[in-house]
Simulated scan of single mutants.
Amino acid sequence: MKAVDRIEVCETPLDVAAEYTALQGNSGDGACALFVGSVRDFNAGSDVCGLALEHYPGMTEKSLQRIINDARDRWSLGRVTIVHRVGPMQINDEIVFVGVTSPHRQAAFAACQYIMDRLKTEAPFWKREAVADESGKPSERWVEARASDAAEMEKWSAG
């Protein structure tokens, strides 16, 4: 089994089908788990009109590689892909693609969730939502880290 990592931070729309196809090819991997996150229209009690993500080039990719390396230390993985968008996005645009192949489904599922949980709590991305204020006037707000994401990470340190 050949281990292959692919990390990309881009401003262009994600091609989920192409990313899935690119994960294929390890004859020893019988499992593939995917997660795709997209821009939703509601958050923290407000209607959301759009989202913009910022990152620190170089630092972000190193952080994502560290997350993948840690996942590889925990599970037998073949190919791992993380593609994350930055820049302005509209409702329903895909933000992130995480794909993992492994000889067995349990490792693929667990590694995919672990990578996403780590990404949500550690990767240096900053989100700014476009929302309408109480009068309907457009405004922007920075998205704070959520306690629920930190709680999800807790289970990985216990196990």
Rank of each mutant, 00 (worst) to 15 (best):
Ser148Lys: 05
Arg66Leu: 10
Asp5Tyr: 00
Gln90His: 10
Lys120Gln: 11
Trp156Leu: 01
Ala130Ser: 15
Pro138Lys: 09
Arg74Ile: 02
Arg128Thr: 13
Leu77Ile: 02
Asp73Phe: 01
Asn92Glu: 13
Asp15Lys: 02
Lys155Met: 02
Ala18Asn: 02
Arg72Gly: 06
Val80Tyr: 03
Gly30Val: 00
Asp93Ala: 05
Ala111Phe: 11
Thr12Arg: 14
Pro13Phe: 06
Ile91Lys: 09
Asp133Val: 01
His84Phe: 00
Val143Phe: 07
Met153Cys: 08
Gly78His: 03
His55Ser: 12
Val100Cys: 04
Leu23Gln: 01
Tyr20Cys: 06
Val36Asn: 00
Glu152Thr: 04
Leu51Asn: 13
Ala22Lys: 06
Arg118Trp: 10
Ala158Asp: 03
Asp47Met: 15
Val48Cys: 10
Val98Arg: 00
Gly159Trp: 02
Gly78Lys: 03
Met89Gly: 01
Arg40Asp: 05
Val96Glu: 06
Arg118Leu: 11
Ser135Val: 08
Arg105Cys: 02
Ile115Leu: 09
Ile68Gly: 00
Trp156Cys: 07
Ala22Gln: 01
Ala151Phe: 04
Arg40Ala: 06
Asp47Lys: 15
Trp142Thr: 06
Asp133Arg: 11
Ser102Gly: 03
Ile7Trp: 04
Leu119Arg: 10
Gly78Ser: 10
Ala130Arg: 15
Leu51Gly: 12
Gly28Glu: 08
Gln65Pro: 05
Cys49Gln: 15
Met59Gln: 13
Ser157Leu: 15
Asp133Lys: 11
Ser102Asp: 11
Thr81Phe: 01
Ile91Gln: 09
Lys155Arg: 14
Glu152Tyr: 04
Ala71Arg: 09
Val48Trp: 14
Met116Ser: 12
Arg6Trp: 00
Lys155Val: 07
Cys10Lys: 04
Ser76Ala: 15
Ser157Phe: 15
Pro138Asn: 12
Ala132Met: 10
Ser63Leu: 03
Val9His: 02
Trp126Gly: 08
Pro13Ser: 03
Glu94Lys: 02
Arg118Asp: 12
Cys112Ala: 01
Ala132Thr: 08
Glu122Thr: 14
Ser46Arg: 15
His84Gln: 01
His84Thr: 02
Ser27Pro: 03
Tyr56Ala: 06
Asp41Ser: 14
Val83Met: 09
Pro138Tyr: 13
Ala107Lys: 00
Ser139Ala: 14
Ala132Asn: 14
Leu23Thr: 00
Arg6Phe: 04
Pro88Arg: 10
Asp47Arg: 15
Tyr20Met: 08
Glu8Pro: 01
Asp41Leu: 04
Pro57Ser: 13
Gly58Asn: 08
Leu53Ser: 12
Asp117Lys: 05
Asp5Glu: 05
Arg79Cys: 09
Ser63Glu: 14
Trp75Ile: 07
Pro57Tyr: 13
Gln65Thr: 13
Met59Gly: 13
Glu61Asp: 09
Cys10Ser: 04
Glu122Ile: 14
Thr21Glu: 10
Glu152Pro: 03
Glu152Ser: 06
Ala110His: 00
Met59Thr: 13
Glu129Ala: 11
Ile115Tyr: 09
Ile7Met: 01
Val100Arg: 07
Ala71His: 00
Glu152Gly: 05
Gly136Arg: 06
Glu152Met: 10
Ala31Val: 14
Thr12Ser: 09
Val16Leu: 06
His55Leu: 14
Phe42Arg: 13
Ile68Lys: 00
Leu53Tyr: 14
